[in-house]
Amino acid sequence: MIPAVDALLKDIRNKRIAPVYLVHGDEPYYLDRIAEELEKVAVPVAERGFNQFVLFGKDTDVGAVLNYARRYPFMAERQLVLVKEAQQMAGIGDKSAQTLLEDYALNPLSSTILMLCYTKEDGKPGLDERKAWVKAFGAKGKLLGVKKIYDNKVPDWVGEYCREQGVKVSPKACQLLADHIGNDLKRLAGEIDKILINLHVGEEISAATVERLVGISKEYNVFELQKALCQRDVVKANQIVDYFARNPKDNPLVVILAQLFSYFGKVLLVQSSKDQSEKALASLLGVNPFFVKDYLSAARTFPLLKVADIIHAIRRADALSKGIEAPTMHEGDILRELVFSVLH
């Protein structure tokens, strides 16, 4: 959990409620979680019909939102006005509308809780915290920005999420989920929740559990491909590649290449490190010490120059997958060519 998010959630759970909230960033999981927590405590269940308003940016505008905020609650102490996808509100980019938001944030109605959830959309700039109206939310309430976590932090996030649910999880299970799903935290949380429903009391989430309940093949996954490459097992590596080629939707090439690039990039770091202790390497690679032996084994299998050649081959495969050089080349053939170059 991001410390600032954790602190805000604790304040909300303890009913230390601010009059205005502006949460923003490119990680919708945390924006939704904060909003859900506020919905739980802001207004009693019996009073929500008349005093809780959940709006969506694409269906409203700044003026309408402020009209809701300025009304008084109906036979209740306070009301909640929550705007999801606030970046889509009509007029949100206009100076006049921003001035109205600033004026309200500086003088909020004490009986209203106003929360704007502003999601950074792909290819568009995020919220500028230097703007006066944004600063006003921070001055009189809570302003919080959250960013997507880096891929190498996802296994730690999985472990932390499982611990929050009171369940033990193995390092390999964390890595398997991270490799299969990536840094989509909402989807990760959903998959873990599904696992928990089918888990026996006191049972640990193991790699086998993930393979069984998430639908990851036990024999044919990127973990096993990396292992086959490291062991120079030509037959096994090609069996896995053939499986990937037959099931491209479940095994997209772009994801496989990204994971192989990360793997061999870490092998290169191991080879260039002066300190070869398990603790130092785990810190350098940003991985659980459980996995250090795998990278050490790969570093012994492939000489430094060969690893550099492999990374170059992965980059070439990525270019081919995007139609550069060979616009009609099949994804399975691209991966077969890559595996051949790694093993020969």
Rank of each mutant, 00 (worst) to 15 (best):
L304Q: 02
I324L: 14
D309N: 11
F302S: 02
E325D: 15
I310P: 02
R315P: 02
L304E: 02
I310N: 03
T301E: 07
L304K: 04
R300H: 15
A326M: 09
V307Q: 00
T301I: 03
K306R: 15
T328K: 09
P303S: 12
D309Y: 06
L304M: 00
S321K: 13
L320Q: 09
E325H: 14
T328Y: 10
A299K: 04
A313G: 10
P303T: 08
S321H: 15
K322S: 13
P327E: 01
R300Y: 10
R315L: 13
E325G: 06
I311S: 06
L320G: 07
L320I: 03
L320W: 13
K306P: 10
I310W: 02
I314M: 05
S321M: 13
R316T: 09
L305S: 13
T328V: 10
A319L: 14
F302R: 00
I310L: 05
L304P: 00
P303H: 08
D309M: 11
P327A: 04
A326G: 01
T301A: 11
P303W: 05
A317W: 02
H312N: 12
V307L: 02
R316P: 01
P327L: 03
T301L: 04
A319H: 13
D318M: 07
E325R: 12
T301P: 03
A313R: 05
G323T: 15
D309F: 12
P303K: 12
I314R: 04
D309Q: 15
R300V: 07
R316Q: 11
